[in-house]
């Protein structure tokens, strides 16, 4: 088994998986301007599980979109590895997302016409590459969705759907996975399963993950929590637990 951490060479390990420099995103203009990101400089280290928290509307999703090449910032730079993604055109960004970034969204993660297996391997198929069957088998086993592979999304539970999405996010062994409230629609059991899997993939596979969450317990699975408010970074917490997160949230007034 070739794991992502082992494929990384020493010198790139030094650089963070992704980082941003004075990232700004403004919607509207003049009086009505909304500064969704008001100058964010942040780095997400390799092989770590970072949670992003903050009140609703604080810019968490916007930050994720701008750093993942889904959206373009108004100003500032964001890097995946040491690649300045602001310099990429649409095709370059698409390739970046396909080959180097994984996504898990809160809902509507899967293409309804494709089976679970096809959804998982979609990024590989889009690249016209061959599926690493060994790796696929490993993911499927880890996520416990082996008996659901031939099913369509409509035949899967919410938790199963999110696990399929996780498998898809991991299929290309990406530099970084962005997950935007992946447990937002799940009950606590399914949430715990999913978070445990994400945790494991960081620990055992050396995967880098950035996860937006509202849930202090969810943040407890992370190595680090970054707090946002009004489009700026307002706090940073290493080795969080549910309690320390809650406490920090209180002091931040969220």
């Amino acid at each position: 088994m070739v794991l992502p951490s082992q494929t990384l060479t020493g010198d790139t390990r030094a650089a963070p998986a992704a980082h941003s420099v004075d990232l700004r995103k403004t919607y509207g203009a003049g009086q009505a301007a909304v500064h969704a990101l008001a100058g964010i400089t942040v780095a997400f280290e390799r092989g770590r599980f970072t949670a992003v928290m903050g009140p609703s509307g604080s810019g968490k999703s916007t930050l994720m979109h701008c750093m993942a090449g889904l959206d373009r910032p108004t100003s500032g730079q964001s890097f995946v590895g040491d690649l300045d993604i602001g310099k990429l055109d649409d095709a370059g960004l698409t390739k970046l997302r396909r080959d180097r970034i994984g996504f898990v969204f809160q809902s509507f993660n899967l293409i309804p016409t494709l089976t679970a297996a096809e959804n998982i391997t979609l990024p590989v198929a889009l690249a016209g590459a061959k599926v690493d069957q060994e790796w696929l088998g490993y993911l499927v086993k880890q996520l416990g969705i082996g008996d659901r592979l031939a099913h369509r999304p409509s035949e899967l539970s919410g938790g199963q759907q999110q696990r399929v999405a996780c498998a898809r996010a991991l299929i290309n062994k990406p530099d970084l996975i962005f997950a935007d409230e992946p447990t937002g629609n799940l009950d606590s059991n399914a949430s715990a399963d999913l978070l445990a899997f994400l945790r494991r993939s960081v620990q055992e596979l050396g995967q880098s993950i950035v996860m937006v969450t509202h849930d202090p317990r969810g943040a407890g699975y992370a190595d680090r929590v970054v707090f946002l408010a009004d489009g700026t970074v307002v706090g940073d917490l290493e080795r969080p637990t549910a309690d320390t997160v809650l406490e920090r949230m209180r002091t931040l007034g969220a």
């Binding site: 698409t94 997302r97 396909r98 889009l126």
Partner: peptide, 16 residues
């Protein structure tokens, strides 16, 4: 719309 957006997000090129 959402489906196409999702496909684009996970790496479908415009051409595709």
């Amino acid at each position: 719309t959402r489906e196409i957006g999702l496909l684009r997000a996970v790496g479908m090129m415009r051409r595709q």
